[in-house]
Amino acid sequence: MEFPGLLVYWIIVVLMMMGLYIVVAQNNLVKKIVGLNVFQVSVFLLYITMGKIAEGTAPILADEIEIYSNPLPHVLILTAIVVGVATTSLGLALVVRIHEAYGSIEDDEILEQESDA
């Protein structure tokens, strides 16, 4: 396979790794959630691109359309987006509560307080 192969997959993988890296490396709890979102979005892209068929159009029944893209991944991703939004909002809500309880949203400062307790 010639380099870079399927470019779109490269983009997805790069996005995915960026997201994962942010989750792991960031100290700030909100930034971790941002990273999580990037990670999830890359997966959404993975699904959506795989539904695309070359020269296919939107799957609307009409006489002149013969090739159309697979609509199922889009539907799945709609669900996944909803789940992602729910996760993000819950995560952010937790961050707010953590801020109230610890007065900080930096992971190391929280850990310090926890080890004191």
């Binding site: 819950l90 995560g91 937790l94 961050v95 610890y102 307790a117």
Partner: peptide
Amino acid sequence: RRGLTAAYRYLIMGTLGATFYII
């Protein structure tokens, strides 16, 4: 209050796990 951070960490790990699954 440690329940909050535990839940947060669980959320991060759990979401990563679920996303891996969906990949």
